[in-house]
Computed example of a mutant assay.
Amino acid sequence: MLRDLSHPITGGMPVYPGDPTVHVHAALDLARDGVAVTALRLGSHTGTHIDAPAHTVHGGRTMADVALDELVGEAMVIRMPELRDREIYGWEHLSSLAPVPDRVPAIVVIATGWARWFADSRATRHPALASDAARELVARGMRILAVDTLSPDLTDGSSTDFPVHEVVLGSGGLIVENLCGLEGLPARVRIGFFPLRLAGDGAPVRAVAFL
């Protein structure tokens, strides 16, 4: 069984503060033009998407450098319930709810439950991972950090400080943001992230759990 973990892309959908707004409209009409074609205008970090190192790292690799086999594999799901608005949770908190093994799978998913606020103003007040916890996960083998929030860092439209991005993307890893549908997933599950074949700093993805 497959489960879709991605938000649908629709016109006017929420985006990270300052990102391009999303426009979806009919460019050609089936009755008038003989075919239906939809025109899209959106940023590379729209909806459920992946960040390549080039997103925040000068000279970092782009999506053109990311192999497909990096994007599919066993994932560890860490649940962080009952977090407060803008709460920063560190390694002690992360590892207190369930033991984190010395070696983790390449994909680590942190489920905060914040996806339910995706279309609400509370979306920007999501909790964030502390950089020390990100560093420990990378040291234990994580290559992709996936979250159900706008970012693993605090969201502040005026800030240029992204410590978790610096740790994960700075190590050559990848970040997936805005997952949904994580409820009930087992602690270990196979997940795939399938991005548009864009050569730049990131791309929308279809995220899928293989149950």
Rank of each mutant, 00 (worst) to 15 (best):
L2E: 13
L2K: 11
R3D: 05
D4P: 05
L5Q: 06
S6I: 01
S6Q: 09
H7M: 12
H7P: 05
H7F: 15
I9N: 02
G11E: 03
G11M: 04
G12E: 09
P14S: 03
P14V: 04
P14I: 03
V15T: 11
P17Q: 03
D19M: 11
D19L: 10
P20R: 01
H23T: 15
V24M: 07
H25T: 14
L28S: 09
L28T: 10
D29E: 09
R32A: 12
D33F: 00
D33G: 03
D33S: 04
T38G: 04
T38K: 02
T38D: 06
R41W: 12
R41K: 13
H49C: 08
H49I: 00
H49W: 06
I50A: 04
D51F: 15
D51W: 10
A52H: 00
P53T: 05
A54G: 08
T56M: 14
T56D: 13
V57C: 12
V57W: 02
G59E: 02
G60D: 01
G60M: 12
D65Q: 15
V66W: 03
A67W: 06
L71E: 00
V72L: 11
E74W: 14
M76T: 12
M76Y: 11
V77C: 05
I78V: 15
I78W: 01
R79K: 08
R79W: 01
E82T: 12
R84C: 07
R84I: 12
R84M: 09
D85H: 15
E87F: 08
H93K: 14
H93S: 11
H93Q: 13
L94S: 05
S95N: 02
S95A: 08
R103M: 12
R103P: 10
V104L: 00
A106R: 13
I107N: 00
V109H: 00
I110G: 03
T112Y: 04
A115T: 09
R116C: 13
W117I: 08
A119W: 11
A119R: 06
S121C: 12
S121E: 15
R125E: 14
P127A: 13
P127E: 10
S131C: 13
S131T: 11
D132G: 14
A133L: 02
R135W: 05
E136S: 08
E136G: 03
E136W: 05
L137W: 04
V138E: 03
A139L: 06
R140S: 09
R143E: 07
R143T: 11
I144H: 03
I144T: 10
L145P: 01
V147L: 04
T149G: 08
L150Y: 06
L150N: 01
D153L: 03
G157V: 14
G157Y: 06
S159E: 13
T160L: 13
T160V: 14
V167D: 01
V167Y: 01
L169R: 00
G170N: 07
S171K: 15
G172I: 02
L174E: 00
E177A: 14
L179M: 09
P186F: 02
P186Y: 01
P186K: 06
R190A: 12
F193Q: 05
F194A: 09
P195H: 07
R197T: 11
A199S: 13
G200H: 07
P204H: 08
V205I: 07
R206Y: 12
V208E: 01
F210H: 09
F210L: 07
L211S: 08
L211H: 08
